[in-house]
Amino acid sequence: MRPKSPILEAINLLGLIHEKTESAEEKELLLTAADALGFINMTGQQYEFDDYRQEFRTEGPEMVVASFATREEAGAWLKNHPRPPYLALVLIADQYHVVMYDRDDNFRKLVSTHSIEYHLEEMMKDGRPPPVASFDTREQARAWFYSLPERPSQAVIQLGSEPYLAAYHRNIDHLAFHPFSLLEPFEQWRKTLDEKKDTEEPGPQS
């Protein structure tokens, strides 16, 4: 006997809700959700889905599907990928990028995104958490992190004189280091965008 599948049970539940729903738009959305779960089940991605759900529930930054040391490595990966993961996130030198892909014309591009800056900003709402450990080098921090009996999704550490967020991506076994100093240019970038928006908005008409 095959074990019960939460995915199949969720599909059945969506079907029951679909029967009681009168809105055509909501019915279509329910079918889309059921089809998405069916796709996961039929393509054998249950374990990957479980990993995603576990990662999604952590306090760490957004999940990535790959990590690269250089943009050249990332570019080669994207160029040779048979089916690029559309809109998935990857790290290049621990900087977040999103995979842009159009299969109709085979357009492929990696675009930088401020995912980690938004995450750091959220962490700073009540002040920056104190570091749990201090190190002189990343190698020392990495050795300490991998020696932990249970690796957390993230930890604030001190590297030299600067605070960092050490983020562990369990699905690809990668430890990323993000300096909190990223927030300063991010805030300046956003301020510049706001000022530009204000100047482009038409004034009140007389």
Rank of each mutant, 00 (worst) to 15 (best):
T70L: 06
E59M: 09
S147A: 15
S206N: 09
Y118L: 13
Q158Y: 02
T58V: 06
S112F: 11
A36H: 12
F186K: 07
D126K: 12
E62D: 13
G44Q: 05
F68P: 01
E187C: 03
H119Q: 09
E162W: 01
A66L: 04
M1V: 13
E201P: 00
K196A: 14
S134H: 11
S161Y: 03
E201F: 08
M42Y: 08
P82Q: 02
V132M: 10
Q154Y: 12
P163G: 01
E22C: 04
V111D: 08
L14S: 01
M123F: 01
Q188E: 15
V90L: 04
A141F: 07
I11T: 05
F177H: 09
R142Q: 12
F180E: 06
W144D: 02
E121D: 15
M1L: 10
F180T: 06
Q158W: 03
E48S: 11
M100L: 14
L30Q: 11
E25G: 02
I17G: 01
M100I: 08
K109A: 14
D102K: 13
A34Q: 10
D136R: 14
D173S: 11
S5C: 14
M63Y: 02
L165F: 03
P61Q: 11
P152S: 05
E139I: 04
L193A: 10
E25A: 13
E200L: 15
N12Q: 14
A24M: 09
S112Y: 11
V99L: 06
E162S: 09
Y52D: 08
E62S: 12
Y146F: 15
T199H: 10
S5R: 05
R57C: 06
L175C: 05
L182P: 00
V156M: 06
L183N: 04
E72K: 14
P85K: 00
M63V: 05
S153Q: 03
T199F: 08
I40D: 05
V98Y: 03
K109R: 15
A76T: 13
H178M: 06
Q140F: 00
Q140E: 15
P85I: 00
Y146W: 10
F135G: 02
L193V: 06
A74D: 03
W77V: 07
E184M: 06
E150K: 14
D198F: 03
M63A: 07
F49K: 07
T21N: 08
Y96T: 03
I40W: 01
P204V: 05
L182E: 09
D194I: 13
N12K: 12
V98C: 05
A155N: 03
R71F: 15
D136T: 14
Q140V: 00
H114F: 12
N12W: 09
L8P: 04
N171M: 07
F49R: 04
M1T: 13
E187T: 07
